[in-house]
Amino acid sequence: MFEARLVQGALLKKILEAIKDLLTEASWDCAQGGIQLQAMDNSHVSLVSLTLRSDGFDKYRCDRNLTMGMNLASMTKIMKCCGNDEIITMKAQDEPDTVTFMFESKNGDKISEYEMKLMNLDQDHLGIPETDYACVIKMPSGEFARICRDLSQFGESMVIACSKNGIKFSTSGDIGTGNVKLAQTSSVDKEEEAVIIEMQEPVTLTFACKYLNNFAKATPLSPVVSLSLSPDVPLVVEYKIEDIGYVRYYLAPKIED
C-alpha cells in the first residue's frame, strides 16, 4: 500500500500548477525513497523532472514500488477542491487502478475524498547525463518570470548570454527588440535576492519563450531559480521545493541547421 501525507497541501497544488500546462499526462513513480515524475511535453522539446523525497512528507509509506499514470487535467480538477490550508493525503493499493486524494481541514472538522482513475502510460524515460555546466546562474525567481513575460511580447525566441560580468536576455521581433541585463550582485542582505553567476566559460544560447514562460509557473514554489547552461546542450531550470525536493525543467536549445 502507498500513503503520503503532506500537511502543507498547498505545495502539491503549486507543483501541479507548475507542470500541468506542459504535460497532459504523467507517471508518478512511487518508491520508498519518495515520488518521482519524469515526462516530456508532446513535442519532445522540454522535459519535467520532479523529485519529492519521502522524508519531506509528514507521513510516508510505500510497501511496493508503483507507477501511477495520471491525467493532469483530471488531477487539476481534484486539486481545485482542496483548500490552500488543507492537508493532503494520497493513497493507493498495490497495483492500483485508482488513487485517492484526501483533503483534511486543519482542525479536522472536514474531510473530503476524491478517487481518480489511473491510466496506463507508455513511459519514455530519458537518461540524462551528469553535466558540468559552463554557467550556473542563481537569481530571484520572480525576476526571471518577469523577464520571460516581458521579452516574450517581442519575439518567439530569447537569447540568454552569460559572461562573468552578468547575464543578458534579449529578443527581437516585428515591433522591435528588447533586452535585459543583470549584473552579478556584489553584496546582499538576503541571499534569495542575489544574482550569482558561477562561470567556467561564457555561453550564449537561444530558447523558445513559450517554454520559459511555462517553467516560470513554478515561481510560487521557490524564491530562487537556477539556470544551468552549456554550449549546445539543453538548459536546466531548477526550482527547489522547500525541504522536500525540486522540479527541474530541461529545454532543448534552438540551433543553427
Binding site: V45, L47, H125, L126, G127, T206, Y250, A252, P253, D257
Partner: peptide, 14 residues
C-alpha cells in the same frame, strides 16, 4: 533562423 532541437538529440531513451 535557428531551428528548434528536441531533447532526443541530446538524451538517450532508456
Amino acid at each position: 533562423m535557428p531551428a528548434q532541437a528536441t531533447l532526443l538529440q541530446f538524451f538517450k531513451q532508456s
